[in-house]
Write a protein that binds this DNA or RNA. Structure first.
Lengths: 359, 359
DNA sequence: TCTCCTCACTGAAACGATTCACAAGGTGCT
DNA sequence: AGCACCTTGTGAATCGTTTCAGTGAGGAGA
């Protein structure tokens, strides 16, 4: 008499939730058969299959992913934890990750740590509870203990834009020392002799590496590293870039560099904005090089020279390694390191004769 | 003899997965008590609680969110489907949504539809299977049927940056007609008499409204709308802006507008870039107004006049309405419409005396 | 001493899907 | 006819948690 899913006696009308059992009853088959229609349609005779499909359709049945996950022991999602969702570099990475994951029928949970270890830890905890298939992580300063926990539990974690601490883990990185060298080498080649590095080294190893590359190039190019000025802004954002530029321009003329390598494009864009505001010409009065080569770099009114990283490819590769490791069969940890490329644009190259009136 | 969670005989070593039952056995209590420690700690005596907590810690127990969800009937996540993850406007919205959701202990699954109805539908299907608490959606052209399905199932859907089709639904929008009027009115006030609208109207209602506002303002300001040129680029991106600018500048001098209202800041930045590339001075030769007022608008080397929307506030408000509706008790649908504000910057205003030498 | 409460804890029944050993019926071969 | 085999379908056990009706133990009051 009493229908299963309609709840307490008073509850009339359509069931709020229709389960595989309701479908089975409606189609006159067992729950096992409905499940087979869903997961192994070939093992069911066409007539039965159609009957079940019709029941599913008229009842508006939708699988309950929680129940599937509970049985399967893991979910059909992967986590992606990024340092700064507002940085277009990471949205490009996210696109790459999502592309690969979606192709396998997996969803991506995108989490933003804002560079804060506590938020990163909270997100990793939540992902652990969700029994995600794996996590792609751009870590904050230190690798948090949650990562070890996750891996002990058999959940693969792939580091992104950061070298692995050991050989027992996948990581997808960029040769940031080379990137730093390219940036500084380019400026030296343009005749600059006093160069600033904006952005670090701070706590992030990838910034540390960029800085090392710059130091090496400057040392080789000028024979000393006294020509290098280090500026560490509050944040790695546009506002941080403005701040850094203001500090640079406050230096006495003798000490003031004529060019800067920025740890990312956001900083470079902020610096550019501040220079323009102060009526300095870029690159004539001051040359700028960014890092990451986000789309906005080329779109800036003074197109920004930048160190290009394969943004989407980084995400794709990380996701591929993650899925391979999650599949388990004979996975070998890999730690690909991509080579960045310098893309020279107007912000650092001798300007064409384009002064609007007189030269 | 045979431990519960260690699986088949061959499996030695630590259990791959430790459940509430293992904790109960280890602490010498029942599973119900462990659950109480987790969810109603006050109902458990301190001594027992500590014992259970210790067991949880030594065993490395982590709740299984799927099982909780299965029991609860719904998950602890909400979905956010955006049109373009690469547009900073949406990442700002996402921050607002996340802020409110996290404060309630909910996670946000961020999905990118790329403006494609098929991707939107696929994401909505996945969210339905996940039994999310609710969905914040910036819809593509049409409201897809999945939205109706979701709402029938009792899952609230809040539309964002789009007016609701009826009063039976929450929506958080911006008065885009007003926004269009503000933008065009500003340009008319600066003396422009021939104005372009870049970006539409296309299929998106919000663009349609912006366009209507521009039309109305131009008609009132000039007495006709012949002075309005409509440019519809391929995409609403920086590349689309470049393309639009190229098409504008290809117009014969008599027909060519002297200013443009762009449907979003990405388009405006692309247009700006193309203008600069062609050595046009902005705003002297051509004035530009963007829309959304993303951070990059102010950061552009020619700071962009734009129509400011409360980006993060939109997200927050949408999430609040969603959670209120999900809570169920006496929810009343609301459809707040925010008023945009014009932020005048250099890209459209008569230039200050800032020529580098003489005043 | 008896009754009545409260407090702390127990244990079994859900939640909804998947899986797997098994059964029933049909087909083909000897 | 007898047997093996394949196809199709069954139904119970299971995943890990929450919830809730109960069970005792202990204390207070009469």
């Amino acid at each position: 008499m009493c229908e299963r899913s309609t709840g307490p006696p008073g509850t009339e009308g359509a069931a709020l939730t229709v389960s595989i059992r309701d479908v089975a009853v409606s189609a006159g088959v067992s729950v096992g058969t409905v499940s087979n229609v869903l997961n192994r349609p070939d093992s069911v005779s066409p007539a039965t299959r159609d009957r079940v499909l019709a029941a599913i359709h008229t009842l508006g049945f939708v699988r309950n992913e929680s129940a599937r996950q509970l049985r399967a022991g893991h979910s059909r999602t992967i986590g992606l934890v990024v340092l700064d969702i507002a940085n277009p570099f990471f949205t490009d990475v996210a696109r790459g990750v999502e592309e690969v994951a979606n192709a396998q029928g997996l969803s991506v949970v995108l989490c933003n740590s804002d560079g804060r270890p506590d938020k990163e830890a909270a997100h990793l905890d939540a992902l652990t509870e969700q029994r995600v298939r794996g996590v792609v992580l751009t870590p904050t300063a230190e690798i948090s203990p949650q990562v070890g926990t996750l891996r002990q539990r058999g959940v693969p974690v792939v580091l992104l834009d950061r070298r692995a601490p050991g050989p027992d883990q996948c990581a997808v990185a960029v040769d940031d020392v080379l990137g730093g060298r390219l940036a500084a080498g380019h400026l030296l080649g343009q005749g600059h002799r006093r160069i600033a590095f904006i952005g670090g080294p701070g706590g992030l190893p990838q910034l540390q590496e960029r800085y090392e590359g710059v130091v090496a190039a400057v040392r080789e190019g000028t024979g000393s590293d006294e020509a290098l000025v280090l500026i560490t802004p509050e944040t790695l954002t546009v506002a941080g870039g403005r701040e850094a530029a203001a500090r640079l321009l406050a230096l006495p003329a003798g000490q003031r560099p004529t060019a800067a390598v920025c740890a990312n494009d956001l900083l470079a864009m902020g610096a550019l904005q501040e220079m323009v505001r102060r009526e300095l010409r870029v690159p004539d009065d001051f040359a700028l090089v960014g890092y990451d080569d986000i789309d906005y770099a080329a779109a800036a009114a003074v197109p920004l020279t930048s160190v290009r990283k394969p943004r989407q490819e980084l995400g794709r590769r990380a996701a591929e390694l993650l899925l391979d490791e999650a599949a388990g069969e004979g996975h070998e940890h890999q730690q690909p390191v991509f080579e960045p490329v310098l893309v020279a644009r107007e912000s650092s190259t001798v300007r064409h004769p384009r002064r609007s009136v007189a030269s």
